[in-house]
């Protein structure tokens, strides 16, 4: 129990630090952190599938993209979601993500392993194709620029710092909600499915249903991320829903450490940081990112959240060696 308390305290401390420090940075940093936080919600939703259920989905950008497009289309065409009704847009985006996941899940959940990967990839690309080809609705290749700016409802979200706090609040709420989820009986059942699906069936779990529900929940939070992303960026293009977005999310989870939630957020921060600053510093930043991924997968299967564990193991072996050396010194 006290272990848990310490962990939670640590995360809360970091969140508070983030909320205090970031607004003091320059306005680009505020924007950058806002983006990383909004995207981290997508990465965490994927972690529910990858880290906790053992389902490597390559289609998570679909829910993200559909909600982002919906936000942009409703705002541009009907002015919906730009005032107090932003608070309707948020659940609407989540519902849309969940509904799409509910449909996709019917196809995807039957498959496992590589087949699951391929099906989710294909379904995700369907959404991309739709975004790209359905010109009259999505603006095709040009995408949609949100003309109305960000919502204003007492709070003026066009102010980047205010908007940062909003996204920060959503991020913290998502982290808390998903944390409760993964420690709930349902969350534990997902872990069981990840570890040994057959045993779960024999223990009386309707494994398909549990996976399906997890898939839908991940879709809902993907949708939330999409709504925030639309307002963060102010522009939605087919690039937003293309495969790379799904891959990015997947790599962030792996980089930070799958099955840790916080790891997904750290992965998001690092990827955004490297991308925006690395690309300014060195033209070969992509190789840096690539190398980071490869090294992580090779040497840190638990991701960055596994670093302290690794260090401890290393220290333990070092200690053993020194005691051995001492013992072998002739007295």
């Amino acid at each position: 129990m006290s272990k848990q308390t310490i962990k939670i305290a640590a995360v809360v401390l970091c969140l508070v630090a983030l909320a205090v420090i970031v607004p003091r940075g320059n306005s680009f940093v505020v924007l950058l952190v806002t983006r990383a936080l909004a995207f981290a919600i997508l990465a965490m939703s994927l972690d529910i599938l990858l880290g906790f259920t053992g389902l490597a989905s390559l289609g998570q950008a679909a829910y993200f993209g559909v909600a982002a497009y919906l936000t942009a289309i409703l705002a541009n065409r009907y002015g919906f979601g730009l005032h107090w009704d932003f608070w309707l847009m948020v659940p609407l985006g989540m519902l849309t993500g969940a509904a799409l996941a509910a449909i996709f899940g019917l196809f995807a959940i039957r498959a496992t392993g590589t087949y699951f990967l391929m099906i989710t990839l294909a379904l995700g690309q369907c959404v991309w194709g739709l975004a790209y080809r359905w010109n009259s609705m999505t603006g095709g290749d040009n995408g949609i620029t949100m003309k109305g700016g960000r919502p204003q409802f007492g709070l003026d979200l066009t102010n980047d710092v205010t908007f940062f706090y909003l996204v920060f609040a959503f991020f913290a709420a998502t982290l808390a909600a998903l944390y409760v989820l993964v420690r709930s009986p349902f969350g534990k059942s997902l872990l069981g499915i990840r570890e040994r699906e057959l045993r779960m069936k024999i223990l009386g779990y309707n494994v398909w249903l549990h996976k399906y529900v997890a898939f839908i929940i991940a879709g809902a939070f993907g949708g939330l991320s999409g709504v925030l992303w639309a307002h963060t960026n102010g522009i939605i293009t087919p690039e937003t829903v293309v495969l790379t977005t799904s891959v990015d999310a997947l790599l962030m989870v792996v980089l930070g450490g799958a099955g840790t939630l916080v790891g997904a957020a750290i992965g998001s921060a690092i990827v955004f940081g490297l991308r925006e600053f690395g690309s300014t510093l060195v033209p070969w930043w992509q190789y840096v990112l690539g190398a980071v991924y490869v090294l992580t997968i090779l040497y840190l299967p638990m991701g960055l959240m596994g670093v302290p564990e690794r260090l401890r193991q290393w220290r333990a072996t070092q200690k053993k060696r020194t005691t051995k050396n001492l013992a072998s010194v002739p007295s």
Binding site: I6, A10, I21, G25
Partner: peptide, 24 residues
């Protein structure tokens, strides 16, 4: 040890963000 185990990566992230914030 628990502190080290769980806190370190999170702190690293925060430090990174803070570091970026100073680079104006």
């Amino acid at each position: 040890s628990i502190l080290r185990k769980r806190l370190a990566p999170v702190l690293m992230g925060t430090a990174l963000a803070a570091g970026l914030a100073m680079a104006a």
